[in-house]
Design a protein around this nucleic acid. Sequence first.
DNA 1: CGGGTGTTTGAATGGCGTCAAAGATTGTGG
DNA 2: CCACAATCTTTGACGCCATTCAAACACCCG
Lengths: 265, 265
Amino acid sequence: MSIASTGSLYSMELLAKRLCTHIDLSPAERELLLTRSHCARTYSSGSTVVMPEQPSLRPTLIVSGWACRERITPSGNRQLLSVLMPGDLIWDGGEERPIDLLEVVAVSNLTVINIAGAVRAMAEDPNRFRSLRHGLGMLRLIEEEQLLEHVVRLGSQSALQRMASLILELFERCHSIGFVTGKTFVMPLTQECLSNFVGLSIIHVNRILRRLKSEGFIRLRSGLVEILDWSGLADIADVSVADRIPVPAADQQRAPISALEMAMA
Amino acid sequence: MSIASTGSLYSMELLAKRLCTHIDLSPAERELLLTRSHCARTYSSGSTVVMPEQPSLRPTLIVSGWACRERITPSGNRQLLSVLMPGDLIWDGGEERPIDLLEVVAVSNLTVINIAGAVRAMAEDPNRFRSLRHGLGMLRLIEEEQLLEHVVRLGSQSALQRMASLILELFERCHSIGFVTGKTFVMPLTQECLSNFVGLSIIHVNRILRRLKSEGFIRLRSGLVEILDWSGLADIADVSVADRIPVPAADQQRAPISALEMAMA
DNA sequence: CGGGTGTTTGAATGGCGTCAAAGATTGTGG
DNA sequence: CCACAATCTTTGACGCCATTCAAACACCCG
């Protein structure tokens, strides 16, 4: 882990943008997010970001790269509980919510910034930053909803369904933070990570991905996922379509030039 | 569903007792729980307690019988997300927490009481009922932790492990509300319910139970589960032993006479 | 007594895991 | 820049765990 002293203005814009899809931020709230200087940390792939015994880390925003919450069983099995990507928050374990006590590990090179300053300012003047607080609360609810959806995935779906629904979920989350170019997004997850998340063996994950490729649902090379047959995938996935957004037209949704680069960092 | 006007004093004691294992209640708080008159409702097995579209129900305490939170996939598959038993709370969906928006169905005959009165009094005088509020919050955290443990179960355990860890969890929960007599507790779940919860087919659940019986781990007849080999089950289950309590000696833990009867109602 | 629901059991199929080993890719240091 | 190691991906063969189909068997309730 290394520490940098940069301001990371750009990354707070990511959070602001994400919040604005759910709520309206007042000028003061936007200012709070964008004017604080934030301490950035980087982790290399595989390193531990938060350890359960030491709930020290203050509220943190993922800026680039992906991470996972995990739990290791006594026999050494590893189960990933959720996938975290830029724009996702990691809270202090001090609030004692079980999900915040899970270990977080970087699954790619990862950059995070500490948003304790903004959170503290929020706590000092609750009324002024009401909708900001509300927005941050929503981000937790979204993660909780993803967890419920994951229980359904693990409990009642076949390997093919699990992979299809996961790919759709990841696509949509990348889409909502502007990390989708055309129908392609960067997925920095090894097949081992995928298998630990969806509860399958590595080898079977590989087979399923091969099938999704050969049957024309996706293209996949070097961590880039391209959705070729959106509705076909959705048919397979068998998840509630209520919150499913259609795949964007290829020429819409031009991501900022640097978005892909950030994700690849 | 039927409505009764009884006071259900006895049932609030159940909640008070459960809270007291985690926090200390002040006299005022105990009084708040025990003196309010509460409206009791009963549901027959299979009926819906809370529907997701209609988050109408005010905070509710399960008094007797079991229920489950469930989600139905578009293709009609049913996945149970959690098991609820006496002493568990069902919150208003109005707070918009995803878990509270799940449908709740009774899986046995069920009696609940509305605790909106106590909750309202709590909201009006937060300081006075601080630790009560804290205690109720803990109950949600416990359910969240159970959900995480369930993800591990579904994602990384075999059928045998799933059943073993589930039986241990249910035993401990029954134990913590005084519904265990000796090493036996009432489990009003059909094998279909079990299968919908642990993500297996009904038939395989049956086979696994047969195996657990024939190999001397449990005894099982007409909804009564007796733990015969606690450490053997724990070995199989492969769950974090941190919060595992040992099985009580046979002559300790005499449950109140009516506890078993209540559960069977 | 009959129907419905839940449980139990068998046989056969198939999905998924395990073992083993060969490519492909990435990253590192010379 | 290349070579090498390490990691990740891919593929085949085999076997087991779990599902499905089918059909008795118990139990409860009207």
